[in-house]
Structure formats: structure tokens, C-alpha cells
């Protein structure tokens, strides 16, 4: 019967397609799932089986302080990135193609530049005798150099700079996909520029804002290099704490617990985004 034949063909193609996925699946299993599971196991098995690592981590004010720092910095970086990135994305979306290409190239080029080099560059700019402090003092705006580095201010500035492209790129895509005729329609309906922005452009670009914000927030939570270089020893962030447990204290149990807390938070945020802002579901 031809019908059976047809279903068979479908089944065969399905199976063949599945075959192609096996290498990728193996990669994911061996390099992601196995290590994370081992870390999870070490966090509940070392030094003795039990939840004592998590209790220590969540029960101590020192560690809670680290969590607080982490969420604070990630939150501030996210908000500042959105506020700075939105106008840039908007401009990129509406400027003539030949200009937007150049600006985009500059942004992407900065992403490709070595992370350490960029972070050290900020150290030079932000330090007590750096360009920023010198300029401000020369202008007479401040008497003493501002403490811009070795604290959370430095971390926030450095990380915002690094995270900006991750906000700008998705936002630009979303804003570009909004039909200008919709904004014209809003204008004729009586909406001034501010009303057009608040009632039409902003809600329509919300999926881009959420996607960008989530990306930045999650990346910021686990960021290591910039906090390590621009932050002070007294204001540690979570990734630094994990590194310290593993490298200096060789305490894999505590390190694993801290890493897993981070993972759980990240996955929760991702789930929230999928649930409420999934563009594939078309709202």
C-alpha cells in the first residue's frame, strides 16, 4: 500500500537525521552534562555526604555578601546597558545603511578585541592618575581623584562596556523589524513623539529588551576576568569565589555548590524568559 510506503520513508529519514545528531549529542554529554553532574555530586559528597556545603554557603553573611555583590553588579550592568544600548540600537536601525555598517563594524571589532586588553585599558583609564580623573581635576570638577577602580564602580563600568554589544545587536534586529508605517499610523492617530515611543515602539521592542537584558544579566552573574581585574579584594563576585574555592582552597565541594547555585539562578531566569517572552510563540 502506498500509504505505508510513505510512512516508512518518513520514518527512515527521521532515523537518518537522528544519526547525524549523535556526535553533537556526545559532545554535549561528555563536555557539559558529565562535568556538571560530577560537580553536583562533589558539592553534596565532599568532604562528607550531605548538604553542609550549601548550608555553609547560604548561611554565612560573608558568602551572602558575595551573592549580593554579584546580583547588584549584574543588575546595575543590565540596566545601564539597556539605557545606553537602546538609543544606540535605535540609531543603528534608522540610520542609512552605509553608516550603520561602519558603526556596527566598530562595535563588533571591539567584541573581537582581546578581553584582557580591553579590561587593562579600562584600568589605565580609571586609575587614580588615569585620564578620566586627570581630566575631571583639570576641569576643576573634583578636588581629589575619584575611586573608580578596585571597587564595584570599576567592575560595573568595565562590564557595562563589554556587555553593550549583547544588548545592541538583538535590539537593533527587533527595532529594524518594526514597520515604520506603524509609527506613522500612530502619529496620525494623534500620538506625539513621546507617546509613539512609550505606547508603540517600546512595547514592540520589549522582546528585544528582555532578550538583551537576560543575556547581559546571565553573563554578568558568572563573569570572572573583569571583576577580578577591576574589582577590589573586598568586593568579590561569585565567579571569583568559585575560583578561590577551587584554586586557592582546593575545596571542590564548596566551589561546586557555589557554581550550582549560579546555574540554578541562570536556568530559572531562562525559563521565565521562555515562558513569557518567547518570540517563537508569537505571544
Amino acid at each position: 500500500m502506498p500509504v505505508t510506503l510513505a510512512t516508512d520513508t518518513v520514518k527512515i529519514t527521521r532515523e537518518r537525521k537522528f544519526g547525524y545528531v549523535v556526535p553533537a549529542l556526545l559532545l554535549i554529554v561528555f563536555f557539559f552534562i558529565v562535568p556538571v553532574t560530577m560537580l553536583l555530586l562533589r558539592s553534596v559528597l565532599e568532604p562528607v555526604p550531605g548538604m553542609q556545603n550549601y548550608a555553609a554557603l547560604l548561611g554565612s553573611t560573608t558568602y551572602l555578601r558575595v551573592f549580593l555583590n554579584t546580583f547588584l553588579v549584574a543588575g546595575v550592568v543590565t540596566i545601564v546597558s539597556i539605557f545606553v544600548g537602546y538609543p544606540v540600537a535605535w540609531l543603528l536601525a534608522i540610520m542609512p545603511e552605509k553608516w550603520s555598517r561602519i558603526v556596527l563594524a566598530i562595535i563588533i571589532l571591539s567584541m573581537w578585541t582581546n578581553l584582557l586588553a580591553r579590561t587593562y585599558a579600562w584600568m589605565v583609564l580609571l586609575q587614580r592618575t588615569g585620564v578620566i580623573n586627570k581630566t575631571l581635576m583639570a576641569l576643576g570638577l573634583i578636588d581629589k581623584p575619584l575611586a573608580l577602580v578596585n571597587n564595584l564602580v570599576g567592575v560595573t563600568i568595565g562590564m557595562t562596556y563589554i556587555m553593550l554589544p549583547f544588548v545592541i545587536l538583538p535590539l537593533m534586529g527587533v527595532i529594524r523589524s518594526i514597520d515604520p508605517a506603524i509609527l506613522r499610523a500612530a502619529a496620525l492617530c494623534g500620538a506625539g513623539k513621546l507617546q509613539c515611543f512609550l505606547r508603540v515602539l517600546l512595547p514592540l521592542s520589549l522582546p528585544g529588551i528582555v532578550a538583551g537584558a537576560l543575556m547581559v544579566f546571565v553573563m554578568s552573574l558568572g563573569y570572572f576576568v573583569t571583576p577580578a581585574l577591576l574589582g577590589g579584594t573586598s568586593n568579590m563576585m561569585l565567579a571569583e569565589l568559585v575560583a578561590q574555592f577551587v584554586q586557592s582552597l582546593v575545596n571542590w565541594g564548596m566551589g561546586g555548590a557555589a557554581a550550582l547555585v549560579l546555574l540554578v539562578v541562570t536556568l530559572t531566569l531562562y525559563a521565565i524568559q521562555l515562558r513569557y517572552f518567547n518570540p517563537a510563540r508569537g505571544k
Binding site: 508605517a181 506603524i182 496620525l188 505606547r199 514592540l204
Partner: peptide, 14 residues
Amino acid sequence: NIGMVFQRYTLFPH
């Protein structure tokens, strides 16, 4: 205070 209907669909999708 003029009304307009456009060539493309311009309802606010949200």
C-alpha cells in the same frame, strides 16, 4: 486630526 488607512497592515500588533 486626520484619519488614514495605509497600504500595509498597520494595526499595533501588541
